[in-house]
Design a binder for these strands. Structure first.
Lengths: 341, 341
DNA sequence: TCGCAGGCGGAAAGCGCTTTCCACCCCCAC
DNA sequence: GTGGGGGTGGAAAGCGCTTTCCGCCTGCGA
């Protein structure tokens, strides 16, 4: 039985060399046994000695050294706007599950919708020789995007995105457009004609698409920009109703803002859905617990994250588009347009 | 001006050597210029040539190689139960902010409260030579904890935890006990005597502490174990009231379960707070939007995450304890105990 | 019995970077 | 004018691992 403390390197870490010595084999053999899969076979007896020694010494391979030698690392990056936003948390969770199946670790970074930050993280990920990066909601809509991504791809990493699909990039495309249209059809079907829309940050592809779907059915809704946060939704609702008291329905482009809108309506004493209907988008867990329970569009976020990660790790990269369905979930916050207002 | 494509390595990545060559200096000089801080000075003119060449070639240092040479990496790990749980998402977000200030990347992993998974990730983080790891809600309450952590620390990494403080580990200690007591005092102050508690997963330190705080004021409450999820809270509330219809208040040990409990009460037609009061714990964003708005205990989660990360990166490690306050937030879900039930 | 092929262990050459150590050059002092 | 010292650039030795290539040994066939 090898000594434990005396064989430890000063840094405290056990090296392959130490394992090899303890097992009485060469470095190369030890490497072959522990990494195994590389074509070559090692005699049973030796392999066992190595495995035993490794376990005994609690050997853990030095990942940076492996990355260097193999010139590929075992980490993937996930870039989100803000992990504290449940929308992205759900996506990240889905992606992390798949990454684990592939024995990869996940670096998560908040870009806060800041192109500079995103560029910076992309460079850092490139520095880490991250095997891949998932852009879950990129700040880039147009071309600058392509350039940064190209640099990453050129150094051997794979790139996939959710939503805003750039040129030739594997993308999971949630049906934002379809979702917007479903809401519009639903509201129109209930007799609503005067509808206000609380939109998200300008320049976000998600926003543009949801809105486009909506306006494909309802022309010229009252628009007000907000920032995808609950508070933003609340003040926007106040303002929207101040300007257009005739509205019989509000469509908030995400659930967080819808929650804020409901709060605003409560403050104004407007009953939902009797006096005014409210719809959201995303079907976050919170949607069920709002009062009234929120009519919204369900995106299977965890699944979307998982698919994106699979796009990143399986198959041949290059411009694949995976659609993800949007589904209307009718709850209690929408009802027939009231004739009086 | 150096050629761009012809100097690129086959892998697509630019190496320091290429930058050095392009700038007409040695590898060593290039390294000194780009890493700079290492004591030695380089003549102005050369430094500029190197910087220019690096920019020109879009050079990004190979992080694994740096980690290997310096024997320290630039990543830190954050282990959470589930990033999709808003409680942990908030903590992670806080931690990530601080990590960014220190130019570190954050590896996030879901342990799902599984000790084996946690052990596994700890080993992987050790393999990455992660500079530090934050255990935000560990699965380990007792001793096995110490052993795994010791292995990590022995190989040069720092460890900090949130909540369950192990021997000699830097820890941010949210005042779970105090929070539990605040709820108890609040409910008792409102005249409640028959109180049910929906607890979390057995063996979680958080659960034990919140409960201990509560029972330090209220002896022998009706207990029912659940799993910290909304659905768990809902079924638990149903069961609790089935068994003990005389309850005038329910304390759910986290907000998610409180949301479930409110749903259950709605299903049962029990009015909150007129007929029965409900309190939660955590003050998640959703608390405000529940109906009625939830009385709960506020933990400053992002701040807790940030402090923990600072503990990890600043100062001398070893057994520091940073308390984080718990604050009662009284909203509408709690009221005077009804005399009739 | 000898030759050759196949199998398997080991030596060694990197992977890209940091950092020590050496050598050189310039300048100052004697 | 020459010797020595400080400062600055470069060569080279690793960091821990993978992987090619080499050589040995074994076993089989003739």
């Amino acid at each position: 039985m090898p000594r434990t403390s005396s064989t430890r390197a000063p840094g405290g870490a056990v090296t392959l060399q130490q394992v090899a010595t303890a097992a009485g084999v060469s470095l190369a053999t030890a490497s072959r046994v522990l990494h195994g899969s590389g074509g070559r076979r090692v005699a049973e007896a030796l392999a066992e000695r190595v495995t035993a020694a490794a376990a005994e010494l609690r050997y853990v391979a030095h990942a940076p050294a492996q990355s260097l030698a193999r010139s590929r690392s075992t980490v993937v990056g996930v870039l989100v706007h803000d992990i504290a936003d449940p929308y992205f948390a759900a996506i990240a969770a889905g992606a992390m599950g798949v990454a684990r199946e592939h024995d990869l670790m996940v670096l998560v970074a908040n870009t806060f919708r800041d192109p500079d930050l995103e560029r910076d993280y992309l460079a850092r990920l490139r520095a880490q020789r991250a095997r891949a990066v998932l852009l879950a909601g990129s700040a880039f809509v147009g071309e600058p995007f392509a350039e940064e991504v190209a640099a990453f791809a050129e150094s051997g990493g794979r790139v996939a995105a959710i939503g805003a699909h750039g040129t030739g990039i594997d993308t999971v495309v949630p049906d934002q457009y379809g979702g917007g249209r479903l809401v519009a059809e639903h509201l129109v079907g209930l007799g609503h004609r005067e509808i206000g829309v609380i939109t998200g940050p300008a320049g976000l592809a998600t926003v543009a698409q949801r809105l486009a779907g909506f306006t494909s059915v309802v022309s010229g809704p009252r628009l007000l920009h907000a920032d995808f946060t609950r508070e933003g939704g609340r003040t926007a609702a106040h303002e929207l109703l101040g300007r257009h008291p005739e509205l019989t329905a509000i469509f908030a482009l995400n659930d967080l803002m819808a929650a804020g809108a409901l709060a605003a309506l409560r403050e104004l004493g407007r009953r939902v859905p009797e006096q005014i209907s409210v719809a959201g988008f995303d079907d976050l867990p919170v949607a069920t617990d709002l009062t009234p329970a929120l009519t919204t569009v369900r995106l299977q976020l965890a699944d979307i994250g998982a698919r994106a990660m699979r796009l990143l790790l399986d198959g041949e990269p290059g411009g694949r588009l995976v659609p993800a369905p949007a589904e209307l979930v009718v709850r209690e916050s929408t009802g027939r347009a009231s004739t009086l207002h």
